[in-house]
């Protein structure tokens, strides 16, 4: 069961997670993830037929606050922390397939 995480799995998941990985990391992650998932699969041993999932331990739903305008974060301060800014906006490289 430990070898069920293949190199292709690691590359696929890394792509989903937008994570570039080096060759050595791909190798070690396939082994480590296999071992961790094998341990974590112990949860399958419990019968959970008819048991609802818990996403959150509090009995709170639909928490609203009054619909009142209040100031947001100071724009200059927020933009000052960004890696690249142009005309009061966050600047990014081109999106795939878009002409520069």
């Amino acid at each position: 069961m430990a070898e069920r995480i293949t190199r292709a799995d690691v590359e696929h998941v890394a792509q989903l997670a937008r994570l570039a990985l080096g060759e050595e990391e791909i190798q070690s992650l396939s082994e480590e993830l296999g071992a961790i998932l094998e341990y974590a699969a112990q949860v399958s041993a419990l019968d959970t037929h008819d048991v609802p999932p818990t996403a959150h331990p509090l009995p709170l739903v639909n928490v609203f606050r009054p619909d009142e305008a209040r100031p947001g974060l100071p724009r200059d301060e927020v933009l000052a922390a960004a890696p690249d800014v142009q005309e009061n906006r966050f600047r990014v490289p081109r999106i795939l397939g878009e002409e520069p």
Binding site: L37, A40, A41, V43, S44, L46, T48, V51, P52, P53, T54, A55
Partner: peptide
């Protein structure tokens, strides 16, 4: 995995 873990959380 995730769904089963959340149900175990309930237990």
């Amino acid at each position: 995995y995730y769904g089963q873990a959340q149900r175990v959380r309930t237990l």
